[in-house]
Write a protein that binds this DNA or RNA. Structure first.
Length: 877
RNA sequence: GGGCGCAUAGCUCAGCUGGUUAGAGCACUUCGUUUACACCGAAGGGGUCCAGGGUUCGAAUCCUUGUGCGCCCACCA
């Protein structure tokens, strides 16, 4: 039978059906793959998207890359597992839902209360999670849905509790009163890397402070001052160091001590700073070094506390104005800088100004030496595995960034005063404290109200998804954990190295004493066409679903895979997707043409063979050897994560070699069914990881088995013959292009036939063997004479190169022809002079390798030959 | 303040360990409905590879300085 494909590829027509077919086959699940028992595993755990909103293009890029890797490895015979999941994203989700209920119901979470609020959160996330999973399927992601996980489902809750308890028992998790980043809006602590620093203009107040004048941007914190500090080497203030001073303040006179500390910069301001140990990180450190008391004056609401007299209850910003006014009345303000630029710390989720506060919180001690880590700390082990290349980074510059960041890591504050998340598994009763998986027996126990930082649970993602702790018995991995951990590669965005990658490494080392993955591949950000981050508020985003509907999932995938290099951001536009849609259609039409020329019977494993079909002509040999080297290049670059390079090579083979040349030749030489079929099969297989839908759809038109689990073509060295074949075919191509060029140049009607005489120097046989190609492949030659050499032909268009001479009869436009020859002549003259100069340079001839010098000599010789002939032709014209 | 990245055709980018007349796609010009594809085909125009200096027989490629843009980290009261 003949297979007939539609004239243009319509992605909408088949994508959903194909995805369903894949899913129903069960092959997304590695347990269903038909593999030898010793087949190696290849695992990627999907970075779980936050359930705060539906997916954006960045997620699509991630899915395209990971699905590419997984499909490639599956075709290569690996036991591939790509495990899906979503992230509860504690604080982010809570913020979104808080905004939602405020808008819809006019209520805060406190109006609702903990349980009703959490109910709202769960119904919200059910909806977004559904959207996210649907979008993921639309991209064609071959994820094992049977292992779908959520960072806050029952299994993960159990894992988190146990992890917390084990860390608590080892003393890695501890509770302590420390300075924390406090977001008054979220009413919670934040980790250091959840704080963003934004440059902005503020006022800098120069205030009279006892014998000093000093600068501060936060005069209201004066109420919490317990010292002033100067640099130990500052000559101006030597005599004050160690003194107790009486300072006049808005609430009366108070005492401060003068201390000397190197943290103070002499050149900034007046070189004197007021020290507010309870509301500044730097001041807190100074206070610790000098044993200074702290005085807390701002509460968790961001309000001045009762100990602030008449300012009590005011928000800090209000109190600041009030205090400044009072100080002015008292003559305590020296002057005010109105446009002082400084960095303000803000919450990465709600943009509120961060208030540093002392607070009792839970921490992970990254410097705590741990028995199970061989007496080393989490930090030490996490750095060590990178140095030893137990984990490698692509691009490798991120290894340094990772290590730098790790080395500066402070203890990680993990408790959050929000409701949505893993509640801390600790119970209190009077002075007693209990950490465990369940509430302790007996009355009067009260569970810690706080929840865990979202990165605590996502840090466990590599192994909590694979069945830890159930699959970890007496220090031995069993089940999925044994089969799939450590995973092979973590593919994620570089912006998340510190937040997530590092946490995963520490958590896995602690729980299993092994790395979570052996490679980290980092992709860049998808920017809009002006190079700006896409964001909802800017309205410059592109909705992936809309693009899929318009151009198809394959086109969207290709547009995110090509033109992206590892770790670098890339600009993106709808036009780019459009060009990829065009390519997908080209691939479809190549298939359409081949299938239309061939009788095929739809059957299982349709005539697939590792044996190359016999090549009858040069073109046959050429396309087969090109295919072979393309397979090599694509495989190598996929192995090295150079996805764009791999796709470029495939694109070049498909369009420039197969479609533009071989298919045209097939129309001329005929009887190529076997080779066309062979090439089409291989082509569909190697394109499949990039464009799974269109390839599967073509495949299913003549196969009853699935392309998805086909076998990747074998790699073999291209024979020495390949380079000769290539050279010979290129020779034919040069002649064809030269003839077309001459036609175009002389403005010859496309339908007008020409006569040609070719002097082939020593390649007469080669050209005669391929004369049908030369005559018919868009060259319009009706009679062709080929000889090794011969007489000049009059009244003909003359084309000369180092390798051949062509005379074209029947269409000459003398003017055009002359100007073309003159141009060519001038160009050659330039080249010849360049070569002569090069070869006259004794140092070049003396020092450069002999083969390079010889090549340059040959080049010159060829130029000179052409030059002479062209000169002659111009004269005669 | 410390670190990293980028600078190549109008646009988006390739150019690995230095060696053809520096490439591709889009855009542009001319021509084309020869039945796979106009989401196409053929031919063509377009670049002192950011600037200065250095290494080398030879530099877009290596070193150095500078300029411009972008990012990360730290942070100034």
């Amino acid at each position: 039978m003949k297979v007939e494909l539609d004239k243009t590829y319509d992605p909408a027509k088949g994508e959903a059906g194909i995805y369903k077919k894949w899913e129903e086959s069960g092959y997304f699940n590695p347990d269903s793959l038909d593999l030898p028992s010793d087949a190696k595993s290849y695992t990627i755990i999907l970075p779980p998207p936050n359930i705060t909103a539906k997916l954006h293009l960045g997620h699509s890029a991630m899915l395209a890359i990971e699905d590419l890797i997984i499909r490639y490895k599956r075709l290569r015979g690996f036991r591939t597992l790509w495990l899906p999941g979503t992230d509860h994203a504690a604080i982010a989700t809570q913020n979104v839902v808080e905004k939602k209920i405020l808008k819809e119901q006019g209520k805060t979470r406190h109006d609702l209360g903990r349980e009703p609020f959490l109910k709202e959160v769960w119904s919200f996330l059910e909806k977004t999670q559904g959207e996210i999973l649907a979008q993921t399927r639309r991209m064609g992601a071959s994820l094992d849905w049977s292992r779908l996980a959520f960072t806050l489902d029952k299994q993960r809750q159990d894992a988190v509790k146990l992890m917390f308890k084990e860390m608590y028992d080892e003393g890695v998790v501890y509770r302590g009163e420390r300075m924390v980043n406090w977001c008054p809006r979220c009413h919670s602590t934040l980790a250091d890397d959840e704080v963003e620093h934004k440059e902005e203009k503020a006022k800098l107040y120069w205030i009279k402070y006892g014998p000093f004048v000093l600068a501060t941007s936060r005069p209201e914190t004066k109420l919490g001052d317990t010292a002033v500090a100067v640099h130990p080497d500052d000559k101006r203030y030597q005599k004050f160091i160690g003194q107790e001073l009486d300072i006049e303040g808005v609430l009366g006179v108070f005492q401060v001590k003068v201390v000397a500390d190197k943290a103070v910069e002499m050149d900034f301001g007046s070189g004197v700073i007021k020290v507010t140990p309870s509301h500044s990180f730097i001041d807190s450190e100074i206070a610790t070094r000098h044993n200074l008391p702290g005085k807390k004056i701002i509460n968790e609401e961001g309000e001045m506390m009762e100990n602030c007299g008449k300012y009590a209850g005011m928000k800090t910003a209000v109190a600041r104005d009030a205090i400044v006014k009072d100080m002015q009345d008292m003559g305590l303000i020296d002057h005010i800088d109105e446009d002082y630029i400084h960095n303000s710390a803000r919450c990465y989720r709600c943009d509120s100004i961060i208030e540093p506060l002392p607070s009792e919180q839970w921490f992970i001690g990254v410097d705590k030496k741990v028995g199970r880590l061989g007496g080393k700390s989490l930090k030490e082990r996490a750095i060590e595995v990178a140095w030893r290349d137990e984990i490698t980074f692509t691009p490798d510059r991120y290894k340094k960034r990772y290590i730098d960041w790790m080395e500066n890591l402070h203890d990680w504050c993990i408790s959050r005063q929000i409701w949505f998340g893993h509640q801390i598994p600790v119970w209190y009763k009077d002075k007693e404290i209990y950490c465990g998986l369940e509430a302790p027996e007996g009355d009067g126990w009260r569970q810690d109200a706080d929840t865990l930082d979202t990165w605590f649970s996502s840090g466990m993602w590599s192994f909590s998804t694979l069945g830890w702790p159930d699959n970890y018995v007496n220090g031995k991995k069993i089940g999925d954990l044994a089969k799939f951990h450590p995973t092979q590669v973590l593919e994620t965005g570089y912006e998340i190295i510190t937040l997530w990658v590092s946490r995963m490494i520490m958590m896995s080392l602690f729980a299993l004493d092994e790395v979570p993955f052996s490679q980290v591949y980092l992709h860049g950000m998808v920017l809009d066409k002006n190079g700006k981050k896409m964001s909802k508020s800017k309205g410059n985003g592109i909705d992936p679903l809309e693009m899929i509907e318009k151009f198809g999932a394959d086109a969207v995938r290709l547009s995110l895979l090509m033109g992206f290099t590892p770790g670098n951001d890339a600009k993106f536009s709808e036009e780019k997707i459009e060009t990829k849609r065009n390519f997908v259609n080209k691939l479809w039409n190549i298939s359409r043409f081949i299938l239309a020329t061939i009788e095929v019977e739809k059957k299982e494993n349709n005539t697939i063979t590792e044996e190359m079909p016999g090549a009858k002509t040069l073109a046959d040999q050429w396309i087969l050897s090109s295919l072979q080297s393309t397979i090599e290049v694509v495989s190598k670059n996929l192995d090295e994560f150079n996805f764009s390079v791999a796709a470029d090579a495939l694109d070049d083979f498909t369009w420039n070699k197969l479609a533009d040349w071989y298919l045209e030749i097939a129309k001329i030489e005929k009887n190529k069914e076997e080779i066309l079929m062979f090439v089409l099969r291989k082509l569909l297989i190697i394109w499949h990881p990039f464009t799974p839908f269109v390839t599967e759809r073509v495949w299913e038109s003549f196969n009853s088995n699935l392309l998805m689990v086909e076998k990747w073509p074998e790699l073999r060295e291209n024979s020495d013959k390949a380079s000769l074949i290539n050279q010979e075919f290129q020779f034919i191509q040069e002649i064809v292009i030269a003839i077309r060029n001459a036609r175009s140049n002389n403005k010859i009607e496309p339908t007008k036939k020409l006569q040609a005489v070719i002097y082939a120097h020593d390649s007469e046989k080669l050209l005669i063997d391929n004369q049908e190609i030369i005559k018919n492949i868009k060259t319009g030659i009706d009679s062709l004479e080929i000889k090794n050499a011969g007489e000049k032909v009059d009244e003909a268009i003359y084309i000369v190169s180092g390798k051949f001479e062509i005379y074209l009869l029947g269409g000459i436009d003398s003017e055009q022809e002359k100007s073309r020859l003159v141009k060519e002549h001038a160009n050659l003259e330039k080249l010849i002079n360049l070569q002569i100069a090069k070869l006259a340079n004794e140092e070049f001839v003396g020092r450069a390798p002999a083969n390079i010098v010889q090549a340059e000599k040959d080049k010159l010789e060829n130029y000179q030959k052409e030059f002479v002939k062209i000169k002659q032709a111009i004269i005669e014209l």
